[in-house]
């Protein structure tokens, strides 16, 4: 019974995190120029690199989301999502330190602004989820857990 509970718990985490990442990725893939603007608002990269990040990161997010949902290379993908969330948390913290009042650009570009603190809290939840999957998931090419 305990094993079964753990099985469903991990399955829920995996699919849930996968849906979040695929959603975040697709929204940005659809509007790379707007996402480039969101990246540029962090004022960390030169002009062109904002576009390069906007062209690539959403695809990494979407790929991670897809692989998590289908259960392909879950440990590797969980590792990538954890690393990305650590990076996002640092970037968001930097906006607070530098006094930048910007939208995090995490999901839908434009529209209502999400504060950096809320985005950090959210990313901590995603990071914890990714770390659980990373440590608990057994090595298998495809996971049915």
């Amino acid at each position: 019974m305990r094993i079964k509970t753990k099985h469903y718990f991990l399955l829920t985490l995996r699919v849930g995190l996968g849906l979040v990442f695929i959603y975040a990725g697709i929204l940005k893939i659809r509007d790379p120029i707007a996402f480039a603007g969101s990246v540029a608002a962090y004022k960390l990269l030169p002009y062109f690199l904002n576009y390069l990040v906007a062209a690539t990161i959403p695809w990494v997010e979407a790929a991670c989301g897809l692989f998590l949902i289908v259960g392909f290379r879950v440990r590797a993908v969980a590792g990538i999502t954890a690393a990305m969330n650590i990076l996002f948390i640092f970037l968001l913290a930097s906006t607070i330190v530098r006094g930048l009042d910007i939208d995090c650009g995490c999901f839908r570009q434009g529209g209502a602004k999400t504060s950096a603190w809320i985005a950090i809290m959210r990313d901590i939840v995603f990071l914890a989820t990714a770390l659980i999957l990373f440590t608990e998931q057994k090595e298998r090419r495809f996971s049915y857990r």
């Binding site: 576009y51 062209a55 990161i57 959403p58 695809w59 790929a63 991670c64 993908v77 990538i80």
Partner: peptide, 20 residues
């Protein structure tokens, strides 16, 4: 992890090559 990130990034660059 490296392969997954690289493949996704290359797909993104190919998809957005005109914009880039």
């Amino acid at each position: 992890m490296t392969v997954i990130v690289l493949l996704a990034a290359i797909t993104g660059i190919a998809w957005n090559h005109r914009l880039l």
